[in-house]
Structure formats: structure tokens, C-alpha cells
Amino acid sequence: MGLKIIVLAKQVPDTRNVGKDAMKADGTVNRAALPAIFNPEDLNALEQALRLKDQFPGTHITLLTMGPVRAAEVLREGLFRGADDGILLTDRAFAGADTLATSYAIACAIRKVKDYDLIICGRQAIDGDTAQVGPQVAEKLGIPQITYAEEVVSVKNNVIKIKRRLERGIEVVEGKLPLVITVNGSAAECRPRNAKLLMKYKHSSTMSERAEKSEDYLAMINDKPYLNIKEWSVNDIECDREQLGLSGSPTKVKKIENIVFQAKESKRLTDGDNDINQLMKELIENHTIG
């Protein structure tokens, strides 16, 4: 029994390593100074899919991402690690989407894929830390969700059993496929690239990427259809355009501010006995401690 799995992955700026040059003088973010990476928890999501593929031969993993042309990088990364197929959802019409409009576009694309048993996403993307897209996609598709998944315990007779990691403990739940799961960072790390797959998919590319390549190059890849990464625009999916991008986003950014902390006038002390003795006396006398 092979499963049909769709993994949702996002390309994100690496906000974990925001250096000084990443912030412009006016307090806005200089996106160009941040490397674009595979959203970390989406790698955990991919690993869960790959494990199911190990367990159930014939499993097919489609990686789906919505983003600019460059986001095809995460699809290739996924192919190198064992995904079977990639879809890039890209169009100006999707730009400026909040999580609701994002999940609408993604749900429409998933409807076009049509045949799926399981949709796996990361718990949250590190650019917004919202953790909203997974559950919102599930609702739009009208299927259940299991969030904070740490491990797929089993899949048997169309029933999936999942261990969830919550703030105060764990929960094991089960439900019938199809459904959406969102995977925690505490789940198993993703396996590295596979050397064979790297060779195989090195030249995989989307239509937009091919537009810039030479004729010879195109001839070389043309007879290998698996090198073709699907690229879908708004015209390729059935959707209500009003619900996409900026117009489909109820939330608007009103204001962006730099963070300023009130600097205090601090008393400087050494690590010498005198200074610390003095300090402790003070803290006791003014009842801060004791």
C-alpha cells in the first residue's frame, strides 16, 4: 500500500541569524542580507513523509511551495532528499497574502492535485511564527488536522496514529485518512541529501528557470521529464481571485516600528568582595530580597 503524500514547504529568510546588516537604518528589514532557507520545521515534515515512504513502498511524495520563482530551490532540495515531485505555485496574484489568503491558494492547488492521503506541513514558518497555514488549509479542504505531531506511530487500514507534543505533555491520537498533520521541530531531523538523487535532480528546474537557459541545455534536459518541476500560476488553479493575495487578506500591516529599549543609568560594580558585599547588603536593606 503506497501513500500519496503532499508536503508543504516554504522558503524563508533565516531570521534566526539576523545580523546587524540585516536591519536597515530606518528600522526595516533588509531581506537581501538574509540567506533564504528551507523552513526548518518543514524539513521535519519532509522526514516524516520519507519515513512513510521507507515503510510503504510505492508511496509518492509531492512537495508543494508557494513563493517567488526562486522558491524552486526548496523543491530541488526536497528532491535531493527523496521527494518524488515538486510543484511551485507562483504568481503576482498571490503576493501580499496573509495566512488566510496563503492557505486559500494552497488549498486550491491541493484540490488540483486531487488525490492525496496525507498532507504534512511544518508547525510554523520562522518568518512569521504563526503556525496558522496548516490548520487553515485543513479547514478549507474540510478534513481533520493533527497539530504538533512528533512522530507517526503507525498507519494501518487507512487509520493514522500520531504522537503529539504539547506544552504540558504528550497525546496519542488517531484518525482516518485523509488529514493534515503539522510537525514539530522536536520530531526527527531530516536526513541529508542523497548523492544519487543529487546527481539525478541537479538539473531539475521550473519553466521560469528554463527561460534563462541555453538551447543546448534545454535539449539535454528535454528528454528527461522528471527534471521538469511543475510551475502553476493563478490560471492553473480553480479559484476565486478575490480571495488571493492582498485582496484576500483580512489583516493589514498598519505600522512597523523599530524596537527601542529604555536604557537605564546603571551602577557599575566589579566582581570584588567589597562591591558584592555592598550590593547584597543594599538588597536586603531595601527588602528586594529576604
Binding site: M23, V29, I126, T251, V253, I256, I259
Partner: peptide, 21 residues
Amino acid sequence: LYQIRPAFGGNIIATIVNPDC
């Protein structure tokens, strides 16, 4: 409702509004 939250890994603070829904 002004929904004020850190954004971009906490490096900026954004005020979000939801006018119509």
C-alpha cells in the same frame, strides 16, 4: 483592534489591523 506583535524573529514590532472581517 490594534494587534501588536513582534515580527521577523522579533527584530521589529508590527501593528496589524483587520478592518473589514
